[in-house]
Design a protein around this nucleic acid. Structure first.
Length: 931
RNA sequence: GCCCCGGUGGUGGAAUUGGUAGACACGCAGGACUUAAAAUCCUGUGUCUUCGCGGACGUACGGGUUCAAGUCCCGUCUGGGGUACCA
């Protein structure tokens, strides 16, 4: 019987589905193990070969852990709210729900074909009301919470209100807006409901606040920082501008320190943890007030270098700084106004592009130096960001490169206060050296000077030691249709959260998926009946893409619970994710938000864990190989790659499916692009050769390769093995199918161990019966098996899947050479292989006479005894260069080995009569002679 | 600029703690079987040198530590990713 993968694979996939082979049990004797993949956004292009890479790896671990006796939770779902379906809806009018459902159906079909061991009874879809009901519920909990700095935890807002009623806010130590005024209990009680609501809003962790946001006019929505790349939107690549808007936001900054500290407890890659640390961006320093001359005002700055305070030669404000207007003198008004207007109109992108362009303007005003009393000019410069620190800096050009450029450009003084640099050439930013020209700091090291400066600043009441984070609060509202409605309504202009029993607030139908004429989000188009209690407007913004994905790992634990997001009993049982696999592009987005929500839910006692995933692996990206044709500019002429330098050309992506080995199928191309039907093709050697480049796989680059063709041609087991065999999981690599025959051949070879009458010496192929013998295995066969068991176990434990496949190949090669068809060897081998190639393993397992799925079998234990060699092959080297090897008994001691080597005749040859200076014998490893 | 991760045959990659560099696979060359093809099997395959035995060189480059370095240290070049006037 031939290896008929098609039949085998579809049979077993049907068997698993029917028998719910991989359903996780919510409890029991076995230890739990939770393996999670980052769930996909179901895009219209379907799964490409990059998607399964991580899923295959996690599936191998899941299946392996089941063999090892774990109760494995391995679920899958869809992050099904998002922009593409909505953009498609805008273009075609098709409801995003329909698009999404179609895409999910396609994904599911593709996933099923690969034979994953998901527990599909736990599937989640973030766009389903029975799921987003709980996303909304969590939002309400966050809305109803404040962050108490005393215990560093979120608490229900009721404890804050109780404190206000008892003592006002004097003793409250909370993360809140800096603008909050102080009030007494009596005053609190006098406030109107609206005033109270506004005060509470300044404390809520989910709050409606006015802030500069990233506005993307083309998408008609605001975006979070992590949704912007290089100053343009990540989706679509549209320009983004800064805009002051009232927006729902999340006070993730309250958790900055805990998010930072938690990283130390996680088994994530260092680069990922670094990315999060940088994103959180903790910097320690001090605030410091500079009194404005001739005014009651003072400018507060934040600095990490209080030691350089005597080197201040000017103060720079961000163009948006609130004091700009009042500080500007009559003489400078025109220049300042012009500068501020210009700075405001400059988009983020321009600001970044002109990063080296130094611009600024003098206000005409001065501050007094807090220690010397000298007058220091106040400048405005857009290198100072309004959103960071206080929006003002004390400029120390001698020891800060940005201040240095600014000072050089405008001819401002550069005062050296730390010895060691060459200020003619550049600023001296290093935190090393002795202080000079600095009064009471003179002679101190930078480190000591910092301490003393802070002490002095605090003593004089000028400021205090302070920690700043780069992390900004996360904007939570999106002016889009296809997202979770924010469960809030407005009554007399006051926002109220819905009651829990009113959830879900279902996404209403709209006539169009565009903003209204007056710029309101699409939800404003909902029927006039879509109002709370029939009269109050609901919030028209929806939640961002990251809302649903910030807690989905919890829903899998209790996916069908109708009364809670997940019962405490089950979240206590499943705890955190033991292995999380996904792309590194989520380093500063999803992975930060999911940690944030996890910590929040823990604070309120809904779950017991502080971190969602202990171990995380980033699978590398599988890149596509794009092909290009070259069009001669201004002509309907396409020139082959080798001749393109003779023309002025522009490159156009061409669908890789009509290109073979970089040779274009010209007829297919003409059909593919109607506009080139009559184009002239300039060929080389009768062929049109395309250019090629490795790029990210994407629909727009026409370089997407789906797993379907591979599965069709070679089977899913081959696809699974091949994706793993390509290289280390974490490494990015371009897709190619060059080696696929190798792994396919391996499976066929394995098959032949069971189906070939090896002893008979018949030709391969043909109709061969299943022949497995019950003979005693030889020592060599046992060694092969146990060596493989050992290596595979080690490989899986360290997620080195490519090497385990090599090890399987070695094993099957050795068994083939030994003509081994013994059950005692092949049976355990199948169990080892089944996580990797489950279909063929199940089939052969059944042929061996088993009636239950191989997934119920225990992983074989390896026996060290079979691995022990009688002999050790000692390489003998001279000055580190191996010259020959000696097979010696393993029982020999190091001195005995040395004696034998010294006496060896080959040794004599290499020593050439000389006495070795030194002989090193590493027991059971190597012998080295120094001559 | 700063941070992180890499650089090994024609190709993908292996070498887990410093101990025989190139496992496994692809590709290529030659051969067997076949009318032929597919499939399968066998042999060879880092570079240079030699008829051959063998010898020399070899893990981006230059140094160093060590009996021994792909692996550790210093410097340089280079590719990829992240991030950026963050005071």
């Amino acid at each position: 019987m031939e290896y008929n993968f098609k039949e085998i694979e579809s049979n077993w996939q049907a068997y698993w589905a029917k028998n719910k082979t991989f359903a996780a049990k919510d409890g029991g004797e076995k230890p739990k193990y939770y393996v999670l993949d980052m769930f996909p956004y179901p895009s219209g292009a379907g799964l490409h070969v990059g998607h399964p890479l991580g899923y295959i790896a996690s599936d191998i671990v899941s299946r392996y852990k089941r063999h090892k006796g774990f109760n494995v939770l391995h679920p899958m779902g869809y992050d099904s709210f998002g922009l593409p379906a909505e953009q498609y809806a805008i273009q075609t009018g098709q409801h995003p729900k329909i698009t999404t459902e179609q895409n999910i159906a396609r994904y599911r079909e593709q996933l099923d074909k690969i034979g994953f061991s998901f527990d599909w009874d736990r599937e989640v879809r973030t766009s389903n009301p029975d799921y987003y009901k709980w996303t909304q519920w969590i939002f309400i909990q966050i809305f109803n919470s404040w962050f108490n700095k005393n215990n560093n935890k979120a608490e229900n807002i009721s404890t804050l209100i109780a404190e206000f009623e008892a003592n006002g806010n004097a003793k409250v130590n909370a993360v809140c807006e800096e603008t909050v005024k102080s009030f007494t209990a009596a005053e609190w009680k006098e406030y109107t409901e609206k005033e109270q609501s506004e005060i509470l809003m300044a404390y809520r962790i989910a709050y409606l606040g006015e802030a500069y946001v990233n506005w993307c006019p083309q998408l008609g929505t605001v975006l979070a920082n992590d949704e912007i790349k290089d100053g343009v939107s990540e989706r679509g690549g549209y320009p983004v501008e800064r805009k002051l808007m009232k927006q729902w936001s999340m006070r993730i900054t309250a958790y900055a320190q805990r998010l930072l500290d938690g990283l130390d407890t996680l088994d994530w890659t260092e680069s990922l943890k670094e990315a999060q640390r940088n994103w959180i961006g903790k910097s320690e320093g001090t605030s410091l007030k500079f009194k404005v001359q001739g005014s009651e005002n003072s400018i507060e700055v934040f600095t990490t270098r209080p030691d350089t305070v005597f080197g201040v030669s000017f103060v720079t404000l961000a163009p948006e700084h609130e004091l700009v207007e009042s500080l500007t003198t009559e003489d400078n008004k025109a220049a300042v106004d012009a500068y501020v207007t210009q700075a405001k109109n400059r988009s983020e992108r321009e600001r970044q592009a002109d990063i080296n362009k130094i611009t600024g303007v003098f206000t005409g005003s001065y501050v007094e130096h807090p220690f010397t009393g000298k007058q220091v000019p106040i400048w405005i410069g857009d290198y100072v960001l309004a959103g960071y620190g206080t929006g003002a800096v004390m400029a120390v050009p001698a020891h800060d490169s940005r201040d240095y450029s600014f000072a050089k450009h405008f001819g401002l003084p550069i005062l050296e206060v730390v010895a060691g640099g060459d200020l003619e050439k550049e600023s001296y930013d290093a935190k090393e050296g002795k202080l000079i020209n600095s009064d009471f700091l003179n002679g101190l090291d930078v480190k000591d000077a910092m301490k003393k400066a802070i002490a002095e600043i605090e003593a004089k009441g000028l400021g205090k030691g302070k920690v700043n984070f780069r992390l900004r609060d996360a904007v939570f509202g999106r002016q889009r249709y296809w997202g979770e409605p924010i469960p809030v309504y407005y009554k007399n202009d006051i926002p109220y959260a819905l009651n829990e029993n009113e959830l879900p607030l279902v996404l209403p139908e709209v006539d169009k998926y565009l903003p209204t004429e007056d710029g309101e989000p699409p939800l404003a188009r909902a029927a006039s009946s879509w109002k709370h209690e029939g009269k109050y407007d609901y919030e028209h913004s929806t939640m961002p893409g990251w809302a649903g994905s910030s807690w989905y790992f919890l829903r899998y634990m209790d996916a069908t619970n109708g009364i809670q997001f997940a019962s405490k009993k089950l979240s206590d049982y499943w705890q955190h994710v033991d292995l999380y696999i996904g792309g590194s592009e989520h380093a500063t987005g999803h992975l930060l938000y999911v940690r944030f929500w996890t910590k929040f839910l823990k604070d309120l006692g809904y779950i017991a864990i502080d971190e969602p995933a202990k171990k995380l692996i980033n699978q590398g990206m599988i890149q596509g190989r794009s092909n290009f044709v070259y069009r001669v500019n201004g002509e309907n002429k396409l020139v082959s790659n080798g001749l393109k330098n003779n023309y002025e050309v522009s490159a156009l992506h061409v669908d890789v499916s009509i290109v073979n080995n970089d040779i274009l199928d010209v007829e297919a191309f003409k059909n593919w692009r109607e506009d080139f039907k009559n184009a002239e093709f300039i060929l080389e050697e009768g062929k049109y050769i395309c250019g090629a480049e490795v790029e990210k796989m994407s629909k727009s680059k026409y370089n997407v390769v789906t797993p379907d063709d591979i599965a069709e041609k070679f089977g899913s087991d081959t696809l699974r093995l091949y994706e793993m065999f390509l290289g280390p999981l974490e490494q990015s690599k371009p897709w190619n199918t060059n080696g696929i025959t190798g792994v396919h051949g391996f499976l066929k070879k394995l098959w032949r161990l069971f189906y070939s009458p090896l002893q008979g010496g018949a030709q391969g192929g043909g109709d061969v019966a299943f022949t497995v013998s019950n003979d005693e295995p030889t020592k060599g066969e046992l060694k092969t098996l146990h060596k493989t068991i050992k290596k595979i176990t080690e490989d899986i434990e360290r997620f080195s899947f490519n090497t385990s496949i090599s090890n399987f190949m070695i094993c099957v090669n050795e068994l083939t050479d030994a003509k081994c068809n013994k059950k005692e060897i092949l049976e355990p081998l199948l169990v080892c292989l089944s996580p990797y190639a489950p279909h063929i393993a199940e089939e052969l397992w059944k042929q061996l006479g088993h009636t239950e799925s191989i997934s119920t079998a225990a992983f074989p234990d390896f026996n060290e005894a079979f691995l022990v060699d009688d002999n050790v092959n000692y390489p003998v080297s001279f000055n580190g260069k191996v010259k020959f090897t000696l097979d010696l008994a393993a029982t020999l001691t190091a001195p005995e080995v040395e004696a034998i080597v010294r006496a060896n005749e080959q040794t004599a040859k290499y020593l050439d009569g000389k006495e070795p200076k030194k002989v090193i014998v590493v027991h059971k490893k190597i012998v080295n002679m120094v001559v």
